[in-house]
Design a protein around this nucleic acid. Structure first.
Lengths: 155, 155
DNA sequence: CCGTTTTCTTGAATGAGTCAAGTTCAGCCA
DNA sequence: TGGCTGAACTTGACTCATTCAAGAAAACGG
């Protein structure tokens, strides 16, 4: 968990003014990875008192644009934010409870980009989203009867 | 492009009643892969005349649940639907114009699932979304000066 | 410390998608 | 072929994440 001074440095390094809402948002996202906007608003308000939701939306956008935060948006979920940036890691989403965890790409360098020119597209990024069951939910489910494995799920 | 009779067979095979809105939606999605709901509503209305948006939403949900359609939801876009189901292929999205194309996974069997048990999650599906520029947009862009390749984009 | 520009506040608006109550119609059965 | 029943469609209101806009406050260079 970085210190406030480090957050301040991050902001200045990105040519962003240092404000209390921005520090609080950075703090909140670091403390609660994959939190949605509403949760972040809550945490920020615990920290600072009254802060408009618009301010938090603005800050999240500014920090995301500056590359200090990363926005993820799993289908069926509202936008979520995390502070781990720059490595383009991936995510697992639990189908049951919706919890999200980080996943490093286990395969070599750029496996999912192997055929880098599909249909004439120039591809610069591959985003992988894994779906499954988290440890809690899978233990509740699989210990009963069937492990219903959905359709063909090739990568 | 399947015939109406084939769409009817598809619906009956899925234990769904055959209705004009459902046939029209199937037709529309087959004719316009990756179309959003609003576009589909428009196409269906060209075909049938007045149809409520609610009906189209209901039909899209029913057909998706039945596995006759697949819903995709790229970040920053509304929901889109396609009729190619059962093979879990992937998609490329153009950062510039937003056009979407299908991508078969070029690598072996289930590459993105290679480490199938991250953080104790039981993973059953890997969804890959490629970002880049479509042929049209990349020719307009790259012929000028720099091919600004975004940050580290490992798969 | 002052002025400029960015950021924050306030309050309204947007728009995809959902909910709910009532009507219509597909498909089963006589 | 005609009626029955539940599913599907219509209508209209509603939700809720997110954005827009105008004015007030605050950051920071000079």
């Amino acid at each position: 968990m970085p210190t406030t001074a480090e957050f301040e440095r991050l902001l200045r390094g990105a040519d962003l003014r240092v404000t209390r809402p921005r520090l609080a948002v950075l703090d909140a996202v670091h403390a609660h990875p994959h939190a949605d906007t509403d949760t972040i608003i809550g945490v920020v308000r615990e920290d600072l008192g009254a802060v408009s939701h618009q301010a938090v939306y603005d800050v999240l956008r500014a920090l995301t644009t500056a590359g200090l935060l990363r926005r993820i948006e799993p289908p069926g979920s509202v936008a979520r934010y995390e502070a781990r940036v720059g490595d383009n890691h991936h995510h697992v989403v639990c189908r049951s409870c919706g919890v999200i965890a980080d996943v490093d790409c286990a395969v070599g360098a750029a496996p999912c980009l192997s055929a880098s020119d599909h249909h004439g597209f120039v591809i610069d990024e591959a985003e992988v989203l894994y779906w499954g069951l988290c440890p809690d939910c899978s233990s509740t489910t699989t210990t009963s009867t069937t492990t219903s494995s959905r359709k063909d799920s090739r990568g």
